[in-house]
Design a binder for these strands. Structure first.
Lengths: 263, 263
DNA sequence: GTCTATTGCGTATGGGCTACGCACTACCGA
DNA sequence: TCGGTAGTGCGTAGCCCATACGCAATAGAC
């Protein structure tokens, strides 16, 4: 069964005393803790480090964000970074929060829980689209960053007039947020496949269709439904970029609407 | 914008000629290609390598699955493995397929698209639950493995009587599959957090609630909805393991039902 | 019985993270 | 005004990783 040390913050990590249970540099980053004012003036700042990391991730993917690489971008030695961040994973968390940013303000003319929730989902998707590397980030502890909390706040507020109880609201947000995230992962995959070999999305899809065709045609009759789908040409052309998202968000909101309707 | 080399199979990888577009060792693994019969008898087999990898992943997480580690488990030298697998990522793909396995047969008394689709989702979840490391696996190219295709086949067949057109069926499967996957990711996170520091799920949640409380209480009035949720005690106790899943799958299926109903 | 494809695997290269400790700096408290 | 000291940047070094390359041994093919 199970087991998966991944993403679990180790025992040894020092914790702050702000009562948050977060690590020291995280508390510092969230402004819960002052950087002491003794010693030499710091030549760097957390912000600069995080910005450098985000820039590298944006142009070369999260895999290119190594301590050495970030240090080089800043013209310092790799070890310098550890004065600001206790481990690379912590830098990742900071980068994640920075890229997530404050949610844009909800327009006043978006009213009613459904429209507001949909707007919220689209806004979230936009953030992911701008930073595809976000969804490649190894997920660690449950998210507890200021910007993330702002998004949650906005999402909860969107459900104000839904009549749902608090616990339900949260469940709905997780559902919608999970959907958005998942959809972007798929998009990022297609994007990666495009960069990797083929060129155009259509070409990638055609190649994929051919692969599946080859795999399913060896044993005829084993994949009837799949071959029917294949025959229908569904995989021959890449969807317009938004098709799957539009479809999915519609279904999910319909499902939530059923719940709200029967309260 | 964007860019994310991750998970993209490189140019240099040798491709088979089976017309699948897959790499040589993948074609071999899928039984589309024979291992030549010259030379010394192989001392290993792909199956043994993959099994060893799966075993390590199961007990120590995907991060512990390195070439050296697998080799040691088999009592061979690391480089031996490269006679069977061209790169570590390929081993991952093989492991993924092996752990996914053939879907269990759909019981005859499960009838109608909704019940069948729900059964399908639960079966999928069960696989993930047994192998939490699966959802930590870096996603690479679009999935094209025999077992994955079998799951797709079963999913499409489940929608036979839905009256949806082929493309829609696929979209529905992606939606449901994505939901399941996402839900398991959350479960894996909680699991990781449990192993990391605290013990019981409740304890983890309480700690999380305390963290959020600390973060939201500095600026009163900035997180009204969130603080209301917090006050409702929603985060104080971990849900029973299935609660979120049950909620989500119900909503998603409700949403699909709306679509099916209006065809 | 030779030929040769294929085997295992040793060596080596080039990364990566990060513990540790040194030399130095500038604020604090007296 | 002037140590004391907590902080600084950063060099060194240890350890783990993936994997290119090439060599000697092997056993089926002819």
């Amino acid at each position: 069964m199970a087991a998966d040390g991944e993403g679990a913050r180790g025992e040894g990590t020092a914790r702050g005393e702000g009562g948050t249970g977060l690590s020291v540099s995280l508390e510092t980053a969230w402004g819960l803790r002052e950087r002491p004012s003794k010693g030499p003036k710091p030549g760097l700042s957390l912000d600069r480090i995080v910005d450098a990391g985000v820039a590298i991730a944006a142009s070369e993917g999260i895999g290119a964000v190594t301590m050495g690489r970030v240090a080089k971008a800043l013209g310092v030695s790799p070890m310098s970074l550890y004065r600001y961040v206790s481990a690379r994973d912590e830098l990742y968390v900071l980068m994640q929060d920075a890229a997530t940013g404050t949610p844009p303000e909800m327009p006043a003319d978006v009213t009613g829980w459904r429209a507001r929730l949909e707007w919220w989902a689209r806004a979230q998707r936009e953030v992911f689209r701008r930073n595809l590397w976000l969804v490649r980030m190894p997920i660690t502890s449950p998210p507890a960053s200021p910007h993330y909390l702002e998004w949650m706040e906005q999402g909860l507020a969107a459900l104000d007039d839904s009549g749902l109880e608090e616990g339900r609201k949260l469940s709905v947000l997780m559902l919608v947020g999970g959907f958005v995230r998942n959809e972007v992962v798929l998009m990022a995959d297609l994007d990666a496949a495009m960069r990797a070999g083929g060129q155009e999305p259509d070409e990638v899809m055609r190649r994929y269709a051919r692969t599946i065709d080859a795999l399913t045609s060896t044993e005829p009759g084993r994949f009837p439904a799949l071959r029917r789908t294949l025959a229908a040409g569904v995989l021959d052309v890449a969807d317009a970029e938004d098709t799957e998202f539009e479809f999915g968000i519609g279904r999910v909101l319909d499902g939530v609407a059923v719940l709200v309707g029967e309260r």
